[in-house]
């Protein structure tokens, strides 16, 4: 125990500590280039499915999956949203990578659904159109998902 500070001074100091923790929690993010790269890959796969032979599309899909598996673990934790700091593990929910992967799985399902609808409607390039639409959703929805994760993290700290 120490008698050097009053209760109100201690409270102010602890409030300042919490405010700084929240400032760091507000940095939880996935780099923007990740979403743009995934979206670009999506469109390329859509183009392959539309214009290339089946084997090329299969090779492209496997290659994209392998590249993603190699890069994603370092990126989707949410701890390295910017090059200016690395957020400590205890501040970021362990569920963030699963949320990002779940989002991408949902986007795969959505691509398939949109392509089937477009195909039934006799659209000329259903796979390419579907992948283009979903790529736009990845670029806008990914950052929105991370913004939700950040808000939750900050709320958890202030609770």
């Amino acid at each position: 125990m120490n008698g050097q500070v009053s209760e109100s001074e201690a409270r102010l100091a602890l409030d300042a500590v919490e405010a700084r923790r929240q400032q760091v929690a507000a940095e939880i993010d996935v780099p923007g280039w990740y979403w743009w790269s995934v979206a670009a890959g999506w469109v390329v796969l859509g183009a392959l499915a539309t214009f290339a032979p089946v084997w090329a599309s299969a090779v492209g899909t496997v290659g994209f999956g392998a590249l993603h598996a190699a890069v994603a673990p370092r990126v989707i934790s949410g701890r390295r949203g910017s090059s200016r700091l690395s957020v400590r593990r205890d501040l970021v929910s362990r569920r963030v990578p699963f949320l990002v992967l779940g989002f991408l799985v949902a986007m795969v399902a959505l691509t398939t659904a949109i392509a089937l609808v477009l195909d039934a409607d006799a659209a000329r390039h259903p796979a390419l159109l579907a992948s283009g639409i979903v790529a736009a959703l990845v670029v806008t929805g990914g950052p929105l998902l991370m913004s939700w994760v950040r808000r939750r993290a900050v709320r958890r700290l202030s609770a």
Binding site: A13, A16, R20, V87, L91
Partner: peptide, 29 residues
Amino acid sequence: AVFDDLIHPSTRLSIVALLASADWADFAF
């Protein structure tokens, strides 16, 4: 629980609190 006179001044407390939530941070951040 040890009161630390070096950390307690508000500017240093803010710096240390910020760094305590990060593995590392840029000077500019």
